[in-house]
């Protein structure tokens, strides 16, 4: 019996509910396209509708996970840690965006900041898996490529947002696969009446 494995089951579950990352990633991509006034996304209401649809999708996916894999109430300590981590991540990514906006660097600060935040976000609580290393590494390399010098801050930030979206979706798909390997496929368990005669 692996003590560490059992103790980290709840944290692993929270981080591997990868399908939840898909609507978030899609929003990053649409935000980038919307800012660049691409196609129908030049209309503000289209992006508003996309946010609404992403919210609904998020709720439905949450319900799917709760039904098939259960519900966990984190400890107060874990909740405080999550809030602090979210604030730190937001500050780092904002720093990357700000660097792209105000400094004329040949790299993409938005993509670099997000790659680092994403790697730390997995590495600290649950550890990096192979797909995290590949995805974060690829995003970091894309941000570090010295081809962002002459494109202008607007283009740089919004393409950075789209790269963030692709990385988030890819990580989410692989995370969901890892969740199934760790906790079993959805059909392995018939949740039904979870009282089970206690």
């Amino acid at each position: 019996m692996e003590r560490a494995h059992l103790e980290s089951a709840a944290a692993t579950y929270s981080y591997l509910r990868g399908l939840l990352s898909i609507p978030v990633g899609v929003l990053f991509i649409l935000a980038g396209l919307s800012n660049l006034e691409w196609g129908p996304l030049r209309q503000v209401w289209v992006f508003g509708a996309a946010v609404l649809a992403a919210g609904v999708a998020y709720l439905l996916i949450t319900r799917y996970y709760t039904h098939h894999y259960g519900r966990v109430t984190p400890s107060t300590r874990a909740q405080v840690k999550a809030v602090i981590a979210t604030i730190v991540c937001a500050l780092v990514v904002t720093g990357g965006l700000q660097a792209d906006w105000s400094l004329d660097l040949p790299v993409n600060g938005t993509a670099i900041a997000f790659a680092l935040v994403m790697a730390a976000n997995y590495a600290i609580p649950v550890g990096l898996r192979a797909h995290h290393m590949v995805i974060c590494g690829a995003l970091l390399v894309a941000g570090l490529l010295p081809l962002w010098g002459d494109v202008g801050p607007d283009y740089k930030i919004n393409v950075g947002l789209m790269l963030m979206g692709v990385a988030t979706i890819a990580a989410g798909i692989f995370d969901h696969g890892a969740l199934k390997r760790t906790f079993g496929a959805p059909k392995d368990l018939n949740p039904g009446n979870s009282n089970a005669g206690i």
Binding site: E7, R71, T73, S75
Partner: peptide
């Protein structure tokens, strides 16, 4: 042990985590 790291968990999650 699973419960020691959380405030609470439901029956389905415990079933998944403990098999």
């Amino acid at each position: 042990t699973v419960l020691s790291s959380v405030a609470a968990a439901d029956f389905v999650f415990l079933q998944r985590a403990t098999r």
